[in-house]
């Protein structure tokens, strides 16, 4: 199951579905890095609301995805980490240090707007 990527003005929204295979995650890498250039996007939202677990592999993949998107000049916000997923991640010792997170899609978009406006003023 491929991850759908939606374009919303300057931003891209990728909604990750539950039970994503490793291959799907890697495909998402390529798709996002390419689409950020194609649409000249300023920011990317990765919505993980329906992801029922985040193991060390998923965390590492998301981290590298955020870094790749950053190298292409866009910011990423990960939103929708479920409470029990957050609990398990902390116990496992998994962190998303240096990566922006938001409660849900709405908050995530607001965060990207804010950081984008700040950049424009400079």
């Amino acid at each position: 199951m491929e991850v759908p990527i939606l374009k919303q003005s300057d931003y891209l929204i990728a909604t990750i579905q539950a039970a994503l295979t490793d291959e799907d995650l890697l495909k998402l890498h390529y798709a996002l890095v390419e689409q950020v250039g194609k649409h000249r996007s300023k920011g990317v939202i990765i919505d993980v609301t329906s992801l029922d677990i985040m193991d060390s592999f998923a965390t590492r993949t998301l981290r590298s995805l955020v870094h790749m998107v950053k190298l292409r000049g866009a910011d990423t916000v990960i939103c929708g980490i479920q409470p029990e997923v957050a609990f398990t991640m902390v116990q496992l010792g998994l962190t998303l240090e240096g990566i922006s997170t938001a409660l849900d899609l709405e908050e995530g978009l607001a965060l990207l707007f804010k950081s984008n406006n700040k950049k424009r003023k400079i």
Binding site: I53, D55, S56, E84, T88, L92
Partner: peptide
């Protein structure tokens, strides 16, 4: 509980990987 189910699924995921 839902938290324990998430833990169980995560443990299986790590060990299987």
């Amino acid at each position: 509980s839902l938290t324990d189910l998430t833990i169980i699924a995560t443990v299986i995921s790590e060990l299987a990987r």
